[in-house]
């Protein structure tokens, strides 16, 4: 089944990539040359925009943000934090983004496992007591990321042909430090030995469940390091205040479920251990809403000579 799934995914991914590339290139090249118009007269030599408010150049951005993780399997994280960025030019900035997890909310899947999961002799380490499953899942506790912002696009948008707002579109990238809390490492044989349980089959299963249940709430913290990147849109409400919306990704491996996912040295599942080998790669993407304040409060205006 796995092989089939991977094969299908791979084929589709290749198809998607190819078509996307063709689509992306379809509108480039010759069509762009249609804009190579030599302008004469009063427009000659003029920049695209004169009198443009330069919101970022030599200004400090202080932003407060709320962030919500997306496509979470077992726990959704709500982070509160912000970022401080300095922009030496209107199109480049550097600074730090970060936040602390204010709320970790269980997903519907977690609730389903808690109510309908079944421990057996084989998976008793992964799920000793279904009702306590929420205690073993992994949580993001905090994130900090030094990053660089690139702001290539600046413009305006109109809402219902009535309200017009300055806006800019930006991309960013950096290194993320993620504070994680996961289920602590545990080896089934060692844990059962402490309780005097010899195996997990038949009548011994209930004893194994009671023996392994405390390991569900044993926690271990660590800091994961991962690349972070994303895009965002700023909507300028005043000269010094903007509303932002950002999408961010932090791909790294972690054990979100606190279950035994790896096999032994010969590849046979399971290996009856919860450890770093059970971490699975996740894309970990999130969306943020923020309010950005700019200092000094008055932006510069571009002139005809400003590029």
């Amino acid at each position: 089944m796995d092989a089939k799934v991977m094969s299908t995914m791979k084929r589709f991914a290749i198809t998607v990539t190819t078509v996307a590339a063709v689509m992306a290139l379809a509108g480039t090249g010759p069509t762009a040359h249609a804009q190579d118009v030599a302008v004469q007269g009063p427009l000659a030599g003029a920049p695209a925009v004169i009198g443009l408010r330069i919101y970022r150049e030599m200004r400090l951005q202080i932003q407060i943000q709320s962030t919500m993780t997306l496509q979470d399997e077992f726990s959704r994280t709500f982070l509160f934090g912000g970022q401080v960025m300095f922009h030496p030019t209107d199109w480049l900035g550097f600074g730090v983004w970060g936040g602390f997890a204010a709320v970790n909310m269980d997903t519907n899947l977690t609730e389903q496992v808690m109510s309908k999961g079944q421990p057996t002799s084989l998976n008793v380490l992964s799920l000793p007591k279904p009702g306590a499953f929420a205690q073993q899942i992994g949580h993001i506790k905090w994130i900090a990321a030094p990053q660089i912002s690139f702001i290539p696009l600046r413009g305006k948008l109109g809402l219902f042909e009535k309200l017009f707002i300055d806006a800019d579109f930006y991309a960013f990238g950096g290194v993320g430090f993620i504070g994680l809390e996961e289920r602590a490492d545990v080896e089934r044989a060692a844990a059962l030995q402490v309780c005097g349980v010899t195996n997990t089959s038949g009548a011994n299963l209930s004893g194994a469940i009671n023996c392994l249940a405390p390991t569900q709430s044993a926690r271990a913290s660590r800091t994961a390091i991962a690349p972070t990147f994303g895009v965002g849109l700023s909507l300028y409400m005043t000269n010094y205040l903007a509303m932002t919306i950002e999408w961010r990704a932090l791909p790294f491996a972690w054990n979100t479920s606190g279950t035994d996912e790896s096999g032994n040295a010969r590849g046979n599942f399971p290996d009856f251990k919860i450890d770093s080998q059970d971490r699975l790669m996740h894309f970990n993407h999130m969306i943020s809403l923020g309010l950005a304040f700019y200092l000094p409060t008055e932006p510069k205006l571009s002139t005809a000579g400003t590029e």
Binding site: P47, W91, G155, K156, L157, G158, F160
Partner: peptide
Amino acid sequence: VYGKFELFND
């Protein structure tokens, strides 16, 4: 909603 974006004032 509609809008325009400029790229490096160019």
